[in-house]
Structure formats: C-alpha cells, structure tokens
Design a protein around this nucleic acid. Structure first.
Lengths: 234, 234
DNA sequence: ACTTGACGTGACCGATCGTTTACATTATGA
DNA sequence: TCATAATGTAAACGATCGGTCACGTCAAGT
C-alpha cells in the first residue's frame, strides 16, 4: 500500500486543485476525500507545495510523452472529411477524459502564480495544438487536400477556435454537446474555405479557389449565445 | 472621503484578486496596499465576499454598457486594410488597459467557483467578440469586402485566434509585442482568405475567389514557439 | 521472537484567516 | 456650539490554516 497512497493523494490533489485552486484547497479535506487524516499527508510529502510541484512534474512529463513525441502524432488525413472526423474524435477525448479536463482547469487557475504552470498552459492552449496541426496540414497540402499556404498560420487559424470551444466545455460542461456540434460546424466551414478542389487549373498566377459553396451556412450562432440546452454526447 | 475609500478598496481588490485569486487574497494586505488597517474594511463592506460580489456587479455592468449597447459598436470598415488596423487598435487597447486585463484575469481565475463569473467569462472570451464581429462582417459582406458566407461563423473563425493571443498576453506579458505582430499577421492572412476581390465576375454558380496570393507566407510560427524576446509596443 | 521501518492518527503548535468590538477622531448640520 | 453620524484603528475573537510530534499498528526480514 506504499505507493498507492501517494498516488491517491496526487489524484485527490488534481481533483481539488482543479476545482478550488491551490490556495482554495486545504489538506484536511484533501486527505479526508481519500479517507485519511490530514497528518498522514506528511508520510508521503513534506509539504502541500511539494504535492503541487510533484503534480506539476507529472503533468509536464505526461504532456511531453503524450504530445511531444512524433510517434504519438495522429496520421495525416487522406481526405477533408477525415480531417473533420479526426478533429471531432480528438475534441471528444480531450473534453471527456477527466484527467485531461482537470489538468487544463488547474493550469487555468494557477497560470499566473506558477511559472511552470504558465509555460505548460501556453503549450496546452496554444503552441501544442498549433504545432501538431502544422505537421498535419503540411502533409495535407502535399497531398493536395488543402490549398498551399503557410501551414503554421493555417494550423493556428484552425486550432484556436477549437481551443476556445474546449475551454467553453471546461467552463460550462452543460454546453458540451452544443460545443461539439460547433466544432464540427467550424471544421466543415474550414475545409470549405481552405480545402483544395479537384479541378486543377493551369495554376499560373490566379488560382481558382472554387471551394466556396456560399449562400447557405453551417448553422452556428445558437451554439454560442443561447441557453444551455440538453447535454448530449455519444 | 466617504466613497473614495470604497473605490480604493474595490480597485485594490481587483488588483489582488486578479493576481492571487479570491482565496489567495487576504484582507490585511488588501487594506495595507491602500494604506488602511484591515479592520477599516468593514466600515464599507460587510464581508470579503461582499467586496467580491460588488466587484463582479461592476464588471457585469461595465461590460453591458461598454460592449452590450449598439452605440459602442465600432464602425464597419470600408476596406480590408481598415479591418486589420481596427483589429490591431482593439487588441492594443484590450491588452494595455490595466483594468480590462485585470478583469479578464479575475474572470479566468474565478470562472469555476462563481456562476456569474463563469457567465461573464464566456461573454468576454467567446460570445461577446463573436457577436460584435458578426455585425461587422455582415456589414462588410454587404459592402462586398468579404465573400458572402455565414457571418457568425466567419466572426467566430476570426475572433477566436485573436482571443487566444489576448490570453497569451495576459499570461505572458513579455510576449505582448510578439503576440501583437501575430495578430496583424493573422488578420492579413484572414483578409487574404476571406476578402472579396474587386474582379466582379458574372457571379453565376462558381464565384472566382481570387484572393489567394499563396506561396510566401505571413511569418507566424516563431511568434508562438520561441523565447520571449523583447517586449515592445507603441 | 525480535527488530526494524513504513504507515496512519489524534493532539497539538504557532500563524494567519475573516470578522467583531470598544474606542477614538473627524466631518456635518442644526 | 453641540449632538450626530461617518470614518478609522488596535486589540482581540474563534476558526482554520499548514505542519509537527509522540505514539500505535502492522508487515517483513532475520
């Protein structure tokens, strides 16, 4: 039962820190939530702060091995439709995996207090997503699925709206279903705007970007404004 | 000196809550920061929580009168270049105005603890920006400056990357200069992709979206990844 | 059987929390 | 001028904070 307790403490810490923040969490309720007296804390950690630092170490290590290594990169889609489904799959995972959600929340709450949390927050919310999709979009441009453009800029334009919807899910879980639909709507809008069409013109100076079935839309706005509505996923 | 003290307390509260959070702020340092003893607090507020609620009331009211009313809407740009400059101007203001920055930070820190903070956060970070630019883009589409498309979706696609960069400025003020350059780069990318060109074709079924000077890029990626670099604005 | 070390706990520590109270000081206004 | 209300403060309150300590238990190794 040695390491087990340490693990439980770290899990309880992630749970409570992500809900009430570091300063808003006290050791008594933390240990009580896993059935221990608060004095037992110090058999495993020398201070509350060491719990925080250990937790942050693990979050950084997890992020590095999960998103930092090339072998965990998702494959480059073979069609625009595949990009949409892959995106939805990724968003579903990241908004339903309790640990990932708590990690984002805790980084949100501690980003101004702790330098390492700040750096990891920037990776989670901004650079990580953008870099991942820079690789993907570079591949898709080579496959002529996307119009040739700066892949990093296109990745930035693609991932940040989705990141905003992920944050919305964290903030208002009741709107998760609606947010996911908005992710799909946005993704379809994106492939409509950035997707390469099959008609390969002479490609001199003016390229024909025929991807504009404009008129009707993709729905959208109710997803952001209105009331919660039911919370469905699947 | 009656109301003056109350104002000072609220300003100090915004300052400290935005830096250390509600639970991370204690009354002694709050009052000391404006030259009072902590016991003086209760001549003006009946509790710490009432300070928080008053502050939140004011943030909500301020947001309503500043961004909720139509008369404060920015004018619809007359050119794509004007959209870029207006965007830069807005981002500059929102990232340099101390009160606005602190408001965003405090909403970030308290969004999971307080329902009203949560709702205001969603407005600040998501729906407010999107709605504002939905109006703007509707106007720009009527003026044939932007390709006709769902204005709400286009507004969402435009504002969320910018919102992400604003958050980056809050998190890492040292990167503010870089972030602002990235805002401009993204804005120019956006008008390149969504802007309507002057060549008015027959406009039958296939519209010529000639806005694609693709090949060279708009710079980007260093703005997100690298080290801080100098912090310049103007 | 006996030692040893790991693990858990209740009682307690000093510090600090938000808040109250008793008491000044000052401004107001009749 | 003098009652009155508004404003500020030091001291103290009970509660709670993170953390320590003496002690009990129990499993492992010899």
């Amino acid at each position: 039962m040695a390491k087990g307790t340490k693990r439980k403490i770290l899990e309880a810490a992630l749970e409570l820190f992500s809900k009430n923040g570091y300063t808003g969490t006290n050791m008594r309720e933390l240990m009580a939530s896993i059935g221990y007296a608060k004095s037992s804390t110090y058999r495993h950690f020398e201070s509350k702060e060491e719990i925080w630092n250990t937790l942050l170490d693990e979050m950084i290590a997890y992020y590095g091995e999960r998103f930092g290594s090339p072998e965990h990169m998702p494959p480059v889609p073979d069609s625009l439709e595949e990009l949409v489904s892959m995106t939805i799959r990724m968003v579903r995972i990241t908004t339903q995996d309790e640990t990932i959600v708590k990690t984002r929340k805790v980084l949100t709450l501690e980003q101004f207090r702790d330098d390492r949390a700040r750096d990891l927050a920037t990776k989670h919310f901004l650079t990580g997503l953008t870099e991942m999709f820079t690789v993907i979009f570079t591949g898709m441009m080579e496959k002529k699925l996307l119009r040739r453009d700066d892949p990093a800029m296109v990745a930035f334009a693609y991932t940040m709206p989705i990141s905003a919807l992920i944050h919305l899910c964290d903030r208002e879980p009741a709107k998760a279903g609606e947010a996911l639909r908005q992710v799909e709507a946005f993704s379809r809008h994106f492939i409509k705007v950035y997707g390469e069409t099959e008609e390969k013109t002479t490609n001199k100076n003016a390229e024909l970007a025929g991807n504009a079935r404009r008129d009707g839309n993709t729905e959208l706005p109710a997803a952001l404004a209105g009331e919660a509505g039911a919370n469905e996923e699947t």
